[in-house]
Design a protein around this nucleic acid. Sequence first.
DNA 1: CGTTTCGTTGATATTAATCAACGAGCGTGG
DNA 2: CCACGCTCGTTGATTAATATCAACGAAACG
Lengths: 248, 248
Amino acid sequence: MKSMGPILQDNAKPGERDHAPHIANCSTCTTRHLSICAALGHEELLTFDHVVQHRSFPAKTVLFEQGAKADFVFSVSEGTIRLFRLLPDGRRQIIGFAIKGDFLGVAMDEVHEYTAEAVDYIRVCRIPRAGFAVMLDEKPHLMKKLHQLAGREIHNSQDQIVLLGRKNAEERVAAFLLSFRERLARIATKSVTIPLPMSRQDIADYLGLTIETVSRTISKLAREKLIVVVPDGIRILDVDHLMALADG
Amino acid sequence: MKSMGPILQDNAKPGERDHAPHIANCSTCTTRHLSICAALGHEELLTFDHVVQHRSFPAKTVLFEQGAKADFVFSVSEGTIRLFRLLPDGRRQIIGFAIKGDFLGVAMDEVHEYTAEAVDYIRVCRIPRAGFAVMLDEKPHLMKKLHQLAGREIHNSQDQIVLLGRKNAEERVAAFLLSFRERLARIATKSVTIPLPMSRQDIADYLGLTIETVSRTISKLAREKLIVVVPDGIRILDVDHLMALADG
DNA sequence: CGTTTCGTTGATATTAATCAACGAGCGTGG
DNA sequence: CCACGCTCGTTGATTAATATCAACGAAACG
């Protein structure tokens, strides 16, 4: 397993803010309505401003590591983050990819259950967990929203369990493309061209396959005219056929 | 795929209560402190009594089916329930096993995301979802408890994702035995003898394997003196070795 | 411009699935 | 009460899917 990139220092101030000078506050945040902040009223948003820390990081930055004390929760404003766990011998399983609007820390764990690492350039809102916990106690609608997110996370996990437990390589890749497309549709206009910021190795570690199998499967789907490989992404040619494949 | 056993009729009154005449109310329920009810105070428990319906069912009873409207949530008092999803061609993936103290409906979905089927004789508390939702809105500590359960469910799912994505047959079986043992320890005294009410096929469908591979792997672990197969269960001989295996 | 990383493809190995047979236990009905 | 038929679990033989090992070209990078 290769090195994991720079660990984020809590006191690593230099340059941090420089990356995102255009975000002044939550009220003007374009990700607001997609994120957990959608549960906040105008006034609450103002108080939230004092708690939230806008940060941005280059690719490969480790936001937090599995096993570390969870001092912050995060809301993703931009970019892609891979969430993974490592086995002692280096085998990696990617639990999920977090994109714009996603919330990291739904479970409000004391300790991080997985490592989070920037796939590309990312912007996040970092929120002290303790303060957030207080807000949750005070604002039932925020708690409700968080629980709603937890429910969605449970669904996604169960989908992934079915995929990993019972689907073959072709079905897994098809399902991945469609589900990632679906998630992108929430934050942009739905398109048949799916940008894939993560590497083939990331996709493999997400789908429980090897990089070679992912590559071969994508080639096969392309040979069968279901998709076309484009720079940094994949275009879907036959959505219906791909869906039928993905569902098993 | 074989038939799925009798579907639970909502109006199936005859005999239902007869199975569990000894449960009069929530206050005397021996499962209370293990379940979501642990979040309820004495008075709340009394009101809960009017909402909760104690029911018991024989093995193979379908509690609810994937895709059906979720009119109830459930708390398990006794027995084992398998939770699974089916692919169109009959492939089955068991999402989890629910045992005494477990809550079905953490996500509070409108529609059931999986089918729940009694493995053996079960007793459950059936709670109308609408009424429960009202209670959640009124009692923040209940909401908090529910969210805590959701967090645990997310963890378990992620463990299972790592298992299915990156572990081999031997590691999967070892991990299953240990995790099931751990869960049983919550409701009984911890023992090296693990009762396994579910079939080999159930274990296979939970671990993303075939029944033959599960059987062979268990035989292998027994040959290596890590476990002994006993009637309706398995006894662990070498916990440490098994743990090392399970963790990868 | 060399060097590294990434993705692809081919050849081979390995794991687990599939196909098949069999014995034990269990319930049912003669 | 025993015999029959099921279901279940186990084991063996073979196949199929994916992993592993290896080579290569293209793009990215210093």
